[in-house]
């Protein structure tokens, strides 16, 4: 299992290739990438986080996914700092013998990373910068698990 919190960009293809290479016994690898949406005149995004708590919170979420589903491996990479529209913010990868477990665990990881990992997004536009408000549906999404 891996948790990486970094400001630098990551190489998605290389990460997926390495992850897949580690889990040759798995029949299913699911990956998800979150990207800065280039819309609404967005010129950039700044992601703040809580060093220390961030890593612990994500590790706990990954542990919970491993407890619930039969996973061979899981990886979360999440960036912080300044990002440009179109850049990858984060990725999750899950590996399992069958795709059901891999898909469900990836969705679970995404739902929990949204509202239980201490990151805060600030969006910049020509008029200034504003903090992204948490959405009620993100909190509601946790109830299905």
């Amino acid at each position: 299992m891996g948790v990486v919190v970094q400001s630098a960009a990551f190489d998605l293809a290389a990460e997926i290739a390495e992850f897949s290479g580690r889990v040759l016994g798995a029949g299913a690898v699911v990956t998800f990438t979150g990207v800065v949406r280039p819309e609404g005149g967005l010129t950039g995004m700044e992601i703040e986080h809580y060093p220390g708590m961030t890593e612990r919170a994500i590790a706990r979420i990954v542990d919970e996914a491993v407890r619930r589903w039969s996973l061979e491996d899981a990886l979360v990479i999440h960036r912080y700092g300044p990002l440009k529209p179109g850049e990858a913010i984060m990725m999750v990868a899950t590996a399992a013998r069958h795709r059901g477990d891999a898909f469900a665990a990836a969705e679970f990881l995404m739902d929990y990373l949204k509202s239980r990992a201490p990151f805060w997004k600030k969006e910049s536009r020509d008029g200034g910068a504003t903090w992204v408000a948490a959405k009620d549906e993100d909190e509601a999404a946790l109830k299905r698990w």
Partner: peptide, 26 residues
Amino acid sequence: DQELASFDAPLAGVREVAFFPPMTGG
């Protein structure tokens, strides 16, 4: 101490308290 808590939680033995808005990760 880097664990989510409630506002009525006791502070005995706590070294670090953090206040922040609802998180927006992912």
